[in-house]
Simulated assay, not measured.
Amino acid sequence: MTEDSGRERTLHQRILGDIEGRIVSGEWPPGHRLPFEMELAAQYGCSRMTVNKVMTQLAKSGLIERRRKSGSFVTQPQAQSAVLEITDIEAEVRSLNLAYGFRLMKRALRKAGEEELRLIDVAEGAPLLALSCVHMAGPRPFCREERLISLAAVPEAETADFTATPPGQWLIGQVPWSAAEHRIRAVNAGADMAAALAIAKGAACLVVERRTWSGQGAVTQVCLTYPGDSHTLMARFTPASQ
Rank of each mutant, 00 (worst) to 15 (best):
P127H: 09
E181L: 10
Q216D: 10
P239H: 10
A235M: 13
E209C: 05
K60I: 01
M1I: 09
R67A: 13
T165W: 05
L171P: 01
S70Y: 04
E115A: 12
N188A: 15
D161N: 15
V187R: 14
H32W: 13
M1Y: 05
A153Y: 02
P30F: 05
Q169L: 06
A152E: 14
L129C: 03
A157T: 06
D161C: 10
F237L: 14
E92S: 12
A203L: 04
G173I: 11
E145H: 04
A59P: 00
A152N: 05
Q242M: 05
L40Y: 07
I15N: 01
G113I: 04
A191W: 03
K111D: 11
L63F: 09
G26H: 04
S178M: 07
G113S: 08
L63Q: 03
A137L: 06
L131F: 06
F142I: 05
G138Y: 11
T220L: 10
C205N: 03
T56S: 10
I120W: 01
S72H: 08
H182R: 11
A194S: 13
T10R: 13
G202W: 08
M55H: 07
D4S: 09
E20K: 05
L119T: 00
A204L: 10
T56W: 07
P176H: 08
V24G: 01
P239M: 15
D229M: 06
G138V: 14
M136W: 15
Q216C: 08
A179G: 01
P141K: 03
G71I: 08
E65Q: 14
Q242G: 07
E209L: 07
Q43E: 15
T225K: 01
M105R: 11
R183F: 11
Q80K: 08
M1N: 12
G6N: 13
T225M: 05
A99N: 11
F102K: 05
T159V: 14
R236F: 13
P227G: 07
S230D: 04
R147S: 10
P167Q: 06
V219I: 08
E158M: 09
M105H: 06
P141D: 02
Q80G: 12
S230T: 15
E90C: 12
M49A: 13
Y44A: 02
A218M: 00
S150K: 02
T87A: 12
V93N: 00
A180K: 04
K53D: 00
A42P: 00
M193V: 15
A130Y: 11
A191T: 14
P35I: 11
M1C: 07
V51A: 09
P167A: 11
F237Q: 04
R210G: 06
A153P: 01
